[in-house]
Simulated scan of single mutants.
Amino acid sequence: MGFEESHHLFIERHSGLRTGERKGRLLRGHQYAERLFLQNVWWPLFESLDHLHPEYEVYDWNRKSQFLDFAFLPPNGVRFGMECDGYQSHVKDMDREKFSYALNRDTFLTGMGWGMLHFSFDDIQQRPEVCMMLLQMALAPYLAGRPAVIELGAEEKDVLRLAWQLGTPIRPKDVTEQLRMNFRTARKLLDSLCSKSLMQPVGKGERTRYYEVKAMRQGQIW
């Protein structure tokens, strides 16, 4: 099933589950920018809209209703909110009060266990590969196509971030130089990330010299 048909069924399904203002918000709020995010960024990575909720209702510290452009709620309990921000509506036309509220809302949701991700409309439209890279980087440490969240130590997270930042296959030597640890520890961390399906060895031969972040595959995260 291609994106067009999947998107149509996606909106139809969520619309059918809602009534009143929640349904109206979906029909009014899910417009060009949000659809383009799914088409240019989300779909090329996952080829699925499973566990994604458009115009998802949340509440702030005063129990005031707000709507996120998207909420990603997989079965393992991870919660990510995603916003598609246009310059005109989210910056140029925002007064000081609205600006402060937007920051406080994100901080409140973060405190409540949400991971908040923001993507500019210009990047979604003109540089979707940047959005894809950042989205994949944000989700990778938490999800790996398994029913439970993968447990990562602080050093493993540092190695994974380094691999993303470099953007090329890395060597244990790169880890030792950048993160200031010994060679044996660097290789142990890289092998551990491979065992958790977050990285994979590169090249041929008996001894692995390079490692890279494992690419996402259709129907799974990692």
Score class of each variant (00 low, 15 high):
His8Gln: 15
Gly16His: 10
Leu17His: 05
Thr19Glu: 12
Lys23Arg: 15
Gly24Asn: 10
Gly24Thr: 11
Arg25His: 07
Leu26Glu: 02
Gly29Asp: 06
Gly29Tyr: 01
Tyr32His: 05
Arg35Asp: 12
Arg35Val: 06
Leu36Gln: 15
Phe37Ala: 05
Phe37Arg: 07
Leu38Glu: 06
Gln39Ile: 00
Asn40Lys: 12
Trp42Gln: 01
Leu45Ala: 11
Phe46Leu: 14
Leu49Thr: 04
Tyr56Leu: 10
Glu57Phe: 01
Val58Asp: 03
Lys64Ile: 10
Ser65Lys: 15
Leu68Tyr: 00
Leu68His: 00
Phe70Asn: 02
Phe72Pro: 01
Pro74Glu: 01
Pro75Thr: 00
Pro75Ala: 06
Met82Glu: 02
Glu83Trp: 01
Asp85Met: 00
Ser89His: 15
Lys92Phe: 15
Lys92Asp: 13
Asp93Phe: 03
Met94Glu: 09
Arg96Gly: 11
Arg96Asp: 12
Glu97Met: 02
Lys98Thr: 11
Phe99His: 11
Tyr101Glu: 06
Thr107Ile: 13
Phe108Trp: 14
Leu109Glu: 02
Leu109Gln: 03
Gly113Arg: 05
Gly113His: 07
Trp114Asp: 04
Gly115Asp: 10
Met116Val: 13
Leu117Met: 15
Leu117Gln: 12
His118Thr: 09
His118Gly: 03
Asp123Lys: 14
Asp123Ile: 03
Gln126Leu: 08
Arg127Ala: 08
Val130Asn: 12
Met133Ile: 00
Leu135Thr: 09
Leu135Val: 05
Met137Lys: 13
Ala138Ile: 05
Tyr142Leu: 11
Leu143Ala: 08
Ala144Ser: 13
Gly145Asp: 11
Arg146Asp: 12
Arg146Asn: 08
Ala148Ser: 05
Ala148Gln: 13
Val149Pro: 09
Val149Gly: 08
Val149Cys: 07
Val149Tyr: 06
Glu155Lys: 12
Glu156Tyr: 09
Lys157Asp: 04
Lys157Leu: 14
Val159Ile: 13
Leu160Val: 09
Leu162Lys: 02
Ala163Thr: 06
Leu166Ile: 11
Thr168Arg: 14
Asp174Lys: 04
Glu177Asp: 08
Gln178Pro: 00
Arg180Gly: 00
Ala186Thr: 04
Arg187His: 06
Lys188Val: 01
Cys194Arg: 07
Cys194Trp: 02
Ser197Lys: 14
Leu198Gly: 08
Met199Phe: 07
Met199His: 01
Val202Ser: 02
Gly203Ala: 14
Gly203Val: 12
Gly205Cys: 10
Glu206Asp: 12
Lys214Thr: 04
Lys214Met: 12
Ala215Thr: 13
Gly219Ile: 06
Gln220Trp: 11
Trp222Gln: 10
